[in-house]
């Protein structure tokens, strides 16, 4: 059996109260991003399978947004709000905040993995124009989130995590 070790990269460092706080919120914001991505993904899949158009998908997502407490004035903006623009309940905001917490408690690899996920929503043309594009985008986000979870698993339980100290050592050796 592999002994669990501290998430801090160095075994002689402590998990202080503020880092515990960041760890809890890291988990909560990642969970929220994952949850929203799965909701959009499910509605997009149904839309694609039933041949529904974008407006129908947007209206369906309006209900999902309402469950999350998001008031969408224009039903045609539900997807944009859930993906990117809502300050508390969009995937983008959730990942952005998760990354802030990761910078406090995570490893370089975890920060990079979350950043990769954030970037899927920042690139040009990221906003889907059809249910199929929404499906593909959320598939990609969910795959990247899986990569984030793998980094957490690896750094917590298994291999030695990459620290800034190690990045620096490799750089000096070059």
């Amino acid at each position: 059996m592999v002994e669990p070790r501290s998430i801090s990269v160095s075994s002689d460092r402590w998990l202080t109260d503020s880092r515990v706080y960041s760890l809890i919120w890291l988990g909560r914001w990642l969970e929220r991003a994952d949850n929203i991505a799965r909701v959009i993904n499910t509605f997009a899949r149904i839309a694609v399978e039933s041949g529904a158009d974008m407006l129908t998908l947007q209206q369906s997502l309006g209900n999902a947004a309402a469950i999350r407490g998001i008031r969408v004035e224009d039903a045609g903006q539900s997807l944009e709000m859930l993906l990117r623009y809502h300050e508390a309940s969009s995937i983008y905001h959730s990942l952005h905040t998760a990354r802030s917490n990761a910078t406090h408690v995570g490893t370089v690899e975890l920060i990079r993995a979350i950043s990769e996920t954030v970037m899927t929503l920042e690139r040009d043309g990221a906003m889907p124009a059809s249910p199929l594009e929404a499906l593909l985008l959320t598939n990609e986000i969910l795959e990247r989130l899986d990569a984030v979870y793998k980094v957490i698993d690896d750094s917590w339980f298994h291999q030695e995590a990459l620290s800034e100290e190690e990045v620096y050592r490799r750089f000096v050796q070059q």
Partner: peptide, 13 residues
Amino acid sequence: SELFGITLVEGSD
């Protein structure tokens, strides 16, 4: 803090 191997703390810690 990572480079030096020392713990990062906030005031509340």
